[in-house]
């Protein structure tokens, strides 16, 4: 049976549109919050959360899992990836704009953010290897070793070692930039 034309993602998801709507209702807020926590920008967090659901709507394999928890895990990982991409993009833009520093004045939120611990942590995450940053954020959000292994496509036995390396890399980058805390 075809879904009504005004249903979310109906063009691609006719058989599972109602499941998609349920997933959206269930996970939208947590997805947007996970992104906002990393990038600290409400408006952009909501845009990226929509992006995550758009990716979901175009990924029939994940939708076929048809399990709220497993799809929720996929959404969370996608949200973290999008948030980290955004952070790295901002860091890159800031570097380019730094070259033209005479052409623009620093915005108040940039000045405020740089002075705060949160701003430092975000800068370090943006500078690290994407895999390490993703691993740390997912682990901090409570992902199990099995979930981390599946998310990063590594053997479960090597998750501990990779995680430990990521933690070292984070601390090293933080200390290099801001000194010991």
């Amino acid at each position: 049976m075809n879904a009504p034309s005004d249903t979310l993602g109906a063009a691609r998801l006719a058989p599972a549109a109602s499941d998609f709507e349920t997933l959206f209702e269930t996970h939208y807020e947590s997805t947007a919050r996970a992104i906002a926590r990393v990038i600290h920008d409400n408006g952009r967090a909501e845009e990226l959360a929509v992006e995550a659901f758009l990716k979901l709507s175009r990924n029939p394999q994940v939708l076929a899992l048809n399990g709220g928890e497993r799809t929720g895990g996929w959404l969370h990982r996608t949200a973290i990836r999008l948030a980290l991409d955004e952070l790295r993009g901002r860091a890159r833009r800031a570097r380019y704009e730094g070259l033209l520093v005479w052409a623009r004045s620093a915005q108040p939120d940039e000045l405020f953010s740089a002075a705060q611990e949160q701003g430092r942590v975000r800068a370090v995450l943006a500078a690290m290897s994407p895999r390490h940053a993703e691993l740390l954020l997912l682990r901090h959000d409570g992902a199990s070793y099995e979930e981390l292994a599946s998310s990063l496509d590594i053997h479960p036995a090597s998750v501990g070692t990779t995680l430990s390396r990521a933690q070292q890399a984070f601390r090293k980058e933080y200390t290099k930039r801001y000194g010991e805390r």
Binding site: D6, L8, G9, A10, A11, R12, F24, E25, Y28, E29, A32, R33, A36, R37, V38, H40, D41, N42, A45, E46, E47, A49, V50, F53, L54, S57, E117, Q118, V121, R122, V124, L136, L137, H140, A166, Q167, F170, R171, Y174, R181
Partner: peptide, 30 residues
């Protein structure tokens, strides 16, 4: 060290995701 650092991250105060508006945007994108 990492736990303490990541624990400091939070969403902006008063953040209330608006699912209704997000739905409209998603419909526009599909």
């Amino acid at each position: 060290f990492v736990d303490k650092s990541l624990g400091s991250l939070n969403a902006p105060e008063g953040f209330a995701p608006n699912a209704a508006h997000a739905k409209i945007r998603l419909q526009g994108r599909t």
